[in-house]
Design a protein around this nucleic acid. Structure first.
Length: 731
DNA sequence: GGTCACTCTATTTTT
DNA sequence: TAGAGTGACC
């Protein structure tokens, strides 16, 4: 965030929103209109002018990043600490509440927070236990079913699904969660909600305490979060909700952007403010964004304007393949850096994480430092999770998943057979797996070899439990790495992979060190560290670089801004992403996502698409994204690379032959390359019997399905199947 | 029970 | 392409 703006004066709209009376307020804030600034200034006004104690304020955001930033910026304005003010994400705050009221919530202390991976593993296990076919009961599908139900506030006994097996799995999953003392993401919120519902006195306490609730990105709240806010806010609270319906991009995760509308209906006396002046982008960028988003229906309607200069035009680069696209980007970055831009001023945005690989390769080969946000998350790496699992069983022995994860890792000679026996026994005796293997009667039924392996595992954990009592966090972690035998295991392997795993574990030790330093006031450092690992997956930094180019998905970029933005992969199927079950409103959400991407740019925006792209091991053709068509041509400046033939395409280096096989793939025997057919390339002029002359814009498909998009002088753009259309190729 | 090599298959976004 | 899952062999 640029300082000149955060310290600057408020404009009239902002000032009204900041200095309003108490009560429920809705701030409709367009992209770049200073919404965080308003939120922070509002908190300052509450404290300074309304004499509200910081401890009576709750500030909710969606990401930890946003929360930390808000905290810091507020303390800058107040010039003091914001002591007692609760900052956090919905999940983080609910976790905090459950840590205090776990009894009332019907769970046990020291619960484990399951991340999506853990959750999926648990569901898979249940499907297996029930002897169901994973093809009929797709674990991922069930995972999203369960999460959607929880996001709506429905437990298994009041949810709707025609397939009773779904409901059974949901029930068994929840049962397993309770038994293993684990809580998933949705549970953090649902348990808090249910606890408030059944304990009016506790609810009362929090309602009275948090008379002032601030919510950022309100359009991203889901049904349950909305209801939770309603509970805490009660009848006389002041909820200050800031949001933008045009930036709702989490519908797929259960967010209900209609909450903005419901807020005015279901909360009392809501006063609405609009922030419509954009301070971020040049007018060229803003016009492109506005034109694009006009294609969505049912918007609340804002008129985002800016009095800044028009600046550079928005550029579009048509690449013929992904290499070309990356080449263009790195070339431009070099140019911009020589012109005085910092690399960290530049962001490369993409729809999906896997699209970053090619870009990374190119940046690496050109030695351009970069930092990638999201993607592989540090705490989701297998070896890191292994070590954390050791820590988890040590503090929560009923955590069966962590028990299972660690007992034979590194291999100690315990196989599927023994595990099955333990699992069975645990199910029948209703005891945790840990309790089972600590029961001498049960152990005596197990073979000598297996039982001695179990004993050595148990002694490792007991040893760790002793160490945990008085060692500091980073010591504990490094003890786990060596005592567990993981370090030895990787040491003897000596592969590149095991080496990098060891490095990651070393990094984990320093992460622990940093965490202790930053959380010296924590009452239970280990618990907080473990929960933090689940809730904040940690950004993985491939290299520690000075001034790196920023790479991230569009989702990650929300709330951020950059002088220069490259928005890549604007192709049908990639962005908008093709979705198997196209849900209603899906396309509009994709469009909003594109809107978010465009409005991240302050000065320069480069859009790019490739005619062919190497994906999932093979090359495919793409047509440009419809979003490009929705922007008037006059607003875009095309940067075409006409000197290169788009098709058939030969790579310059011949180190592999996939391009050649690609040619053959397209021109099979039915449609072989024939000297009478000139190069089909984008920009090629053609003549059609009926439509007359035109220019090839793009193409898709292969063989007899090869389709060309042609822009005819008198008939406009048309798609024609090459094998049927009688085309004359002009020079 | 452990390991390795092979096959299969899924490829969206995240707290 | 890469990660997960499977099966054969030690």
């Amino acid at each position: 965030m640029s300082n000149e703006r955060s310290s600057g004066e408020l404009n009239e709209q902002q000032s009204k929103a900041v200095n309003c009376s108490l009560g429920n307020k809705l701030i409709l804030a367009g992209a770049g209109s200073g919404k965080t600034k308003v939120l922070i200034h509002r908190v300052a006004v509450l404290i300074r002018d309304f004499n509200i104690k910081p401890s009576n304020i709750l500030a909710l955001t969606f990401t930890n990043k946003a929360s930390n930033e808000m905290k810091q910026r507020l303390e800058n304005i107040l010039r003091t600490t914001s002591q007692g003010l609760w900052f956090g994400t919905f999940h983080g705050i609910c976790r905090r509440i459950l840590k205090i009221h776990w009894r009332e919530a019907g769970i046990r202390d020291f619960f484990t927070i399951l991340d999506s991976q853990d959750q999926l593993r648990m569901i898979k296990r249940i499907i297996k236990q029930k002897n169901l076919d994973e093809n009929l009961y797709d674990p991922k599908h069930l995972q999203s079913f369960i999460n959607r139900q929880k996001d709506k506030g429905s437990r298994y006994d009041n949810c709707d699904n025609d397939d009773t097996k779904y409901i059974e799995i949901y029930r068994d999953y929840d049962l397993a969660c309770r038994q293993t003392n684990s809580v998933d993401f949705a549970d953090l919120i649902l348990l808090t909600y249910e606890m408030f519902k059944s304990n009016p006195s506790i609810l009362n306490y929090y309602s009275n305490r948090f008379k002032n609730i601030m919510v950022d990105e309100f359009q991203d709240t889901n049904t349950l979060q909305f209801e939770l806010l309603r509970l805490i806010n009660g009848t006389n609270g002041s909820l200050y909700a800031v949001g933008d319906d045009d930036q709702a991009i989490y519908g797929w995760r259960g967010a209900r952007s209609k909450n903005i509308k419901y807020f005015t209906d279901q909360f009392s006396d809501v006063e609405i403010f609009k922030l419509e002046q954009n301070y971020r982008s040049t007018n060229s960028i803003l016009s492109v964004a506005n034109k694009l988003i006009e294609n969505n229906t049912g918007r609340l309607g804002k008129n985002l304007w800016s009095d800044s200069d028009s600046g550079d035009p928005v550029f579009v680069y048509e690449a013929f393949n992904d290499d070309d696209e990356c080449g263009f980007i790195t070339e431009k970055i070099r140019e911009l850096v020589t012109k005085g831009y910092k690399r960290s001023d530049i962001a490369i945005l993409y729809r999906s994480n896997y699209l970053s690989r090619r870009i990374e390769e190119e940046l690496n080969s050109k030695s351009i430092p970069y930092k990638i946000f999201g993607g592989f998350r540090f705490f989701e790496r297998a070896e890191v999770k292994d070590v954390l699992a050791y820590l988890r069983v040590s503090v929560n022995t009923s955590d069966d998943s962590s028990f299972e994860r660690t007992i034979n890792n590194p291999p100690r000679g315990l196989g599927e057979k023994t595990m099955r026996v333990i699992r069975e026994h645990s199910k029948i005796s209703q005891k945790s797996m840990w309790d089972c293997v600590n029961d001498p009667n049960f152990i005596s039924t197990i073979g000598a070899r297996a039982s001695s392996s179990i004993q050595s595992y148990l002694s490792i954990i007991r040893n760790l439990q002793n160490i945990i009592k008085d060692a500091n966090l980073s010591t504990i972690i490094s003890e786990i790495i060596s005592l567990s035998g993981l370090n030895n295991y990787y040491e003897t392997k000596k592969t590149d992979e095991s080496l990098s795993k060891q490095e990651n574990l070393e990094e984990l030790v320093s992460t622990g060190e940093r965490f202790s330093a930053n959380n010296s006031d924590s009452e239970n450092l280990i618990q907080d560290f473990l929960d933090n690992a689940s809730l904040e997956a940690g950004e993985y930094q491939s290299k520690i670089n000075e001034d790196p180019v920023q790479l991230m998905t569009i989702h990650m970029s929300k709330g951020l801004e950059f002088p220069v933005v490259f928005l890549t992969g604007l192709e049908e199927g990639i962005f908008p992403n093709e979705n198997r079950n196209i849900t209603p409103g899906f396309m509009e959400e994709e469009r909003r996502l594109c809107y978010v991407a465009i409005t991240r740019a302050m000065k320069k925006l480069f859009l790019s698409y490739a005619n062919s792209r190497y994906i999932h091991g093979s090359s495919s053709f793409f047509i440009p994204s419809r979003f490009l068509d929705e922007i008037p041509e006059s607003m875009l400046q095309s940067v075409k690379n006409k000197s290169k033939t788009a098709y058939p395409y030969k790579k310059n280096n011949f180190d592999n032959d996939h391009n050649q096989s690609m040619d053959q793939d397209i021109f099979s025997d039915k449609f072989s390359i024939d000297q009478s057919v000139p190069f089909i390339r984008v920009g090629q002029r053609v003549n059609h019997m009926r439509f007359g002359q035109g220019v090839i814009l793009s193409y898709t498909g292969k063989n007899e399905d090869l389709k060309l998009q042609i822009n005819f002088e008198n008939y406009g753009k048309k798609w024609l199947v090459l094998s049927y259309a009688q085309l004359e190729f002009l020079n």
